[in-house]
């Protein structure tokens, strides 16, 4: 009970996970706040000393964000406009302290409906890489986040990286977040959008996802289809495109407002892709 492991290699980490249930700890920015007034007494696996998990690397196939990469790593990495949305999200997560320690992978694994990273990862068509003592597997992002704080990760697995494929065409991205104040705020609604452009300036493919409007952020396939072949124009977004959303009332906002604001943010996101 209450052991704390901080291995420096993957085999050690995976062996620890295989040996019994253990909470993976990265930046701790989701872990500690749920334990206010209580001593941390769980069995923990701190993954931040595993060199293989750090950093963001580019290859021909695309980009690999290590599980220990922080939001600040994203902000400071030299990345193409495809990542402007993720970078914008990184700058809006918490305050700089949270950005310096919180990880994208932690944001994903915590799977809050309001996680700012997830709509971007959906729009980026990311793949989640998992490892356990038994082997590795890759899961498309949409199949990884299953619901409010539910993921496809098994207890003996950990996320090792998130990869993002290199787009076939020039791509741009945006992220828009609506919150109740300027900094340190959990989103009421947020939108991540990526568009690849054909040579004539029309959208070749678009992927748009909305967060905090359903148990897990979702993409809007009908809207994506409607944008294909068009130039970015907010007027192309209609209320019918919001069908996949199922917002709820909570302390931050009522459901009806969320739906209404999502429409506005989507229109603005499309405009911003121009």
């Amino acid at each position: 009970m209450g052991s704390y492991l901080r291995p420096t290699s993957m085999p050690e980490a995976l062996a620890a996970l295989a040996a019994g249930p253990r909470i993976v700890l990265a930046g701790g920015t989701d872990y500690y706040p749920t334990r206010v007034g209580r001593p941390p007494e769980d069995d923990l696996l701190d993954i931040t000393a595993i060199g293989a998990l750090s950093g963001i690397v580019e290859s021909d196939a695309g980009w690999r964000i290590g599980a220990a990469a922080s939001w600040t790593d994203v902000i400071e990495a030299p990345l193409p406009p495809l990542f402007d949305g993720l970078k914008a999200a990184a700058r809006e997560v918490g305050g700089v302290q949270i950005q310096n320690t919180g990880t994208i992978a932690g944001n994903l694994c915590n799977a809050s409906p309001a996680a700012d990273g997830i709509p971007n990862l959906l729009a980026l068509d990311a793949t989640v890489h998992l490892a356990s003592a038994g082997g590795e597997r890759a899961v498309p992002i949409a199949g990884f986040v299953l619901g409010n704080r539910r993921t496809a990760r098994r207890g003996d697995e950990m996320v090792t990286a998130i990869t993002i494929p290199r787009p076939r065409n020039p791509a741009r991205s945006v992220f828009l977040k609506l919150g109740g104040r300027r900094y340190l705020v959990i989103s009421i609604v947020m939108v991540g959008a990526v568009a690849e452009f054909a040579e004539d300036g029309t959208i070749a493919t678009a992927r748009l996802a909305v967060g905090a409007c359903s148990a897990a952020a979702v993409r809007l396939p009908a809207l994506e289809a409607a944008l294909a072949g068009k130039r970015p124009d907010g007027a192309l977004v209609t209320e019918a495109h919001l069908a996949p959303l199922a917002p709820i009332d909570d302390v931050r906002a009522p459901a009806a407002y969320r739906r209404d604001a999502a429409l506005t943010l989507l229109r603005r996101a499309v405009e911003a892709l121009r």
């Binding site: 704390y4 700890l25 930046g27 701790g28 920015t29 500690y32 706040p33 941390p40 923990l44 701190d46 700089v96 302290q97 949270i98 310096n100 320690t101």
Partner: peptide, 8 residues
């Protein structure tokens, strides 16, 4: 800068 209350 980090929040010392969140750093193990």
């Amino acid at each position: 800068q980090v929040c010392a209350c969140l750093v193990p």
